[in-house]
């Protein structure tokens, strides 16, 4: 069973993301929620996370800090990452891609946008 970690300081945003994934058929999964980067990193270090979906603007440790920690950890670096944020434009996309992000979605998120990301990540063999 796929374990998907959703990190966002807004419970509303986390629920919207999970609902969108369930709507496009990503149902047979274990969903885990984190409300900031530190909580997300703790969950990831405990192991078993197959996909990280994260916001950027979070308290304590933001999305970029979380990404840097994940990508610099030999144990976590291969975990695929989707960033879902309201801060995204072309300049930030370039920066995020250089940090090793697999896919980027602008808020508001939709099932269609998430489906495209999931298909792209699956096609590249990061998850199955």
């Amino acid at each position: 069973m796929l374990k998907i970690l959703i990190a966002d300081d807004s419970k509303t945003a986390r629920m919207i993301i999970q609902r969108c994934l369930e709507m496009v058929g990503v149902a047979n999964c274990e969903y885990v929620h984190a409300s900031d980067g530190i909580e997300a990193l703790t969950i990831m270090r405990a192991g078993g996370v197959d996909l990280l979906i994260t916001d950027l603007n979070m308290p304590n440790l933001d999305g970029k800090g979380l990404l840097l920690a994940v990508k610099s950890s030999p144990k976590l670096t291969n975990t695929p990452v989707i960033v879902i944020s309201s801060l995204v434009n072309q300049a930030l996309e370039i920066e995020l891609n250089s940090l090793g992000v697999n896919s980027i979605i602008n808020k508001p998120v939709s099932p269609v946008k998430l489906l495209e990301c999931m298909e792209s990540i699956m096609e590249k063999g990061f998850i199955s």
């Binding site: 807004s10 509303t12 945003a13 919207i16 603007n57 944020s85 309201s86 801060l87 995204v88 434009n89 072309q90 300049a91 930030l92 920066e95 602008n106 808020k107 508001p108």
Partner: peptide, 23 residues
């Protein structure tokens, strides 16, 4: 909070264009 967060992101992205980052 999430509604305004999303709205602000859209407003800034549309206003400042593709080459500026914003916080």
């Amino acid at each position: 909070g999430e509604l305004l967060n999303t709205l602000c992101g859209r407003l800034l992205a549309m206003r400042v264009g593709p080459t500026h980052t914003f916080r």
